[in-house]
């Protein structure tokens, strides 16, 4: 799904990364807990969250996620947006709560990330 479609579906505002709206994301993740993002997220996903601190940007950077939608009408402070711009993120903000936002995107065909945490079982068996 293109970010442009997500923007439209969620009636979202673009806070950063205007020029990258044609980019595709393959699935969605939703969490306010950053350690959860680290454990479960995959690259090329759109991350929905109600947390608006610097930590969201750092967490997503580590997890190689660069599309974030802030929900519940929250908008991060300027310095967070600046940090995100520096790192080439796309940031959107929607008034919808997390549950509704997930519902709308799911209904439009976006699926969730795999549920298994990043575990290298093969590595461990070796």
């Amino acid at each position: 799904m293109k970010i442009r479609e997500i923007k439209k579906l969620l009636n979202a505002k673009v806070l950063a990364g205007k020029e990258r709206l044609e980019m595709e994301v393959f699935c969605g993740g939703a969490s306010d807990l950053m350690s959860d993002v680290l454990a479960y997220a995959r690259p090329k996903i759109v991350q929905l969250t109600g947390l608006t601190t610097n930590q969201v940007i750092y967490t997503c950077e580590m997890a190689q996620i660069d599309v974030v939608v802030f929900v519940r009408g929250k908008e991060p402070p300027k310095e967070v947006i600046e940090l995100a711009k520096e790192k080439g993120f796309v940031l959107l903000a929607t008034k919808l709560p997390l549950y509704e936002a997930c519902g709308v995107l799911y209904e439009a065909g976006l699926t969730g990330t795999m549920i298994e945490p990043l575990k290298a079982e093969k590595r461990k068996k070796k």
Binding site: D32, L33, M34, S35, D36, L38, A39, T49, L51, T53, Q55, V56, P117, L118, K119, A120, R123
Partner: peptide, 18 residues
């Protein structure tokens, strides 16, 4: 409330390292 403290820190490190 800062989005941390879910008790996944060390387990997550363990999962990701050799």
């Amino acid at each position: 409330e800062l989005g941390f403290g879910a008790g996944m820190g060390l387990p997550n490190i363990q999962n990701n390292s050799d």
